[in-house]
Write a protein that binds this DNA or RNA. Structure first.
Length: 472
RNA sequence: GUCCCCAUCGUCUAGAGGCCUAGGACACCUCCCUUUCACGGAGGCGACCGGGGUUCGAAUCCCCGUGGGGACGCCA
């Protein structure tokens, strides 16, 4: 049997973390088994589906590098086929027209809730032996309902949750075609999973309750029942459900925020799945290791700290040229002119280990290309009266030094020794004048990158400013 | 309300009856490295939801409770 999995998002919003993980697991299982991964857009909710959302989903998938073998299929383009199958079910007495109005149904539900019952359709239009149906009211377009078995159990071995059994008495006759004739989700899924030959349905566990209905319809169509794997949800970092209002952001937002797709993928893979103590691995390894036995059946909380840690790791190990291209895009969009400073590649090489995100990395190196705002309070703390003269004479000597890390380092070292000081006594003021702040890589390395004339110009202009202030 | 699912450090997880004095990772703390901040290295803090069974033995199996989540749409 060739494994065929699918990812079937509805285009009512962007691709978020939960969807991305579902897609990732489906993709991985297909890859592991040399099967096919199919992308299907479930756009039968005409009112809420948008082309923008379709694009957002496709963008998200390709940013993550989750490539599909077939599709994207659009359900709206298969409407005729669904209608045929619906007609077939009606002809075979496996489905029927129901003339209940929405108001009637709301009424029914409300009454059942009041009685402590599970709200469900009572089957008033369901044709049965010896039962007389009311006359169809005129002027009402009926919906089509599937005739669900009214006894027995639907049982399946969920690949994640184990055996699940649900009584048919809990299920009602669900609507498979709306009054305007369009088929509904539960029905389209069944027809598609069947006709597209899906062998493993991997989806969020909010679909567990749909599964028995779908199995019943599959049986009615004499179709093979696929395996089901229901993934537990991903909760927000506060343990609350993710929703549009609450923390469910597009995967593309992670791109904007400076995360590498391989970091997000690695993080997501590890959320609800494990392979012993493995924490850091690429998708080749993941698709090799992936299996349903190692999926956790409980919900997982999203944790940004760990994503940050992974992202830092991937930044540290990324191709320098890739980082250069990503960082230069960011800096350019911040109106930073890269021609005004050192080779970006050299800067990134020195700074890549210091940031969790590309965004932070880009922002941390801006002062190579434009003058930094100097933290004056901090400067005051380090540039005390006693070090100013030493700094001045150091600057003069700097003019003649060979512009290499060691030579600069030696000069600083010699200056502090001559004056009975410790290294930071000179290094800190230099750092502040050159970068604006108190944190940077080794100051000699920063100086080499900045270049001699820029270094001297920044130091001198700051020292002059101090002098002028003192004279005032 | 009814049905379904879930339950190990703060978080992600390992754990398939003895290997568990419960392992790893993130976060946190301490120390080392050091030119500040990071990186890196070495340590540390920290958990089996509760109660009953089953068993010579239970984090692991069963039952009940509790807590969390999901579903109950002419949404997907």
């Amino acid at each position: 049997m060739t494994v065929r999995t699918r990812f079937a998002p509805s285009p009512t919003g962007y691709l978020h973390i939960g969807g991305a993980r579902t897609a990732l697991f489906s993709w991985a299982y297909a890859r592991k088994n040399k099967g096919q991964f199919i992308l299907r857009i479930e756009d039968t909710d005409v009112a809420r589906s948008t082309p923008e959302a379709v694009k957002a989903i496709l963008d998200g998938m390709s940013w993550l590098g989750l490539d599909w073998d077939e599709g994207p299929f659009y359900q709206m383009q298969r409407i005729d086929r669904y209608k045929q199958v619906i007609q077939k079910l009606i002809d075979e007495d496996k489905a029927y027209y129901c003339y209940c109005s929405k108001e009637e149904l709301d009424d029914l539900r409300e009454r059942q809730m009041r009685l402590g019952l599970k709200p469900r359709y009572d089957g008033r239009w369901r044709p049965e032996k010896g039962k007389t149906l009311p006359a169809p009211p005129s002027g009402i377009d009926p919906v089509v309902r599937f005739k669900n078995p009214d006894s027995g159990f639907v049982v399946w071995d969920d690949l994640v949750k184990g055996q699940i059994s649900i009584s048919n008495e809990e299920l009602d006759d669900l609507i498979i075609a709306r009054s305007d004739g369009t088929p509904t989700y539960n029905f389209c899924v069944v027809v598609d999973d069947w006709e597209m030959g899906i062998t493993h349905v991997i989806r969020g566990d909010d679909h567990v309750n749909n599964t028995p209905r779908q199995i019943n319809m599959l049986k009615a169509l004499d179709a093979e029942i696929p395996f089901y794997a229901h993934l537990s949800m991903i909760l927000g970092s506060d343990g609350q459900k993710l929703s549009k209002r609450h923390g469910a952001v597009s995967v593309m937002q992670y791109d904007d925020d400076g995360y590498l797709p391989e970091a997000l993928l690695n993080y997501l893979a590890r959320l609800g799945w494990s392979h012993g103590d493995e924490e850091v691995f690429d998708m080749e390894k993941f698709s090799h290791w992936f299996d349903f036995n190692s999926i956790t059946s409980s919900a997982a909380q999203f944790n940004l700290d760990k994503l940050n840690w992974l992202n830092a790791h991937y930044i540290k190990h990324a191709d320098l040229s890739l980082l250069v291209s990503k960082i230069s895009k960011r800096l350019t969009s911040l109106n930073v002119d890269l021609a005004q400073g050192p080779d970006l590649l050299k800067v990134i090489e020195l700074y890549r280990e210091r940031s969790n995100t590309l965004k932070a990395l880009a922002e941390s190196i801006i002062y190579f290309y434009q003058l930094p705002d100097i933290d004056l309070e901090l400067a005051g703390k380090h540039m005390t009266e006693d070090v100013l003269p030493i700094l001045r004479s150091f600057t003069v000597k700097l003019n003649d030094v060979e512009w290499k890390i060691e030579a600069i380092h030696d000069l600083i070292q010699q200056t502090v020794s001559d004056n009975g000081l410790k290294f930071p006594k000179i290094a800190m003021p230099l750092r502040i004048m050159l970068t604006g702040g108190a944190q940077s890589p080794s100051v000699d390395a920063v100086m080499v990158l900045l270049g001699k004339s820029e270094v001297l110009s920044r130091i001198n202009s700051f020292l002059d400013k101090i002098k002028n202030n003192l004279n005032k």
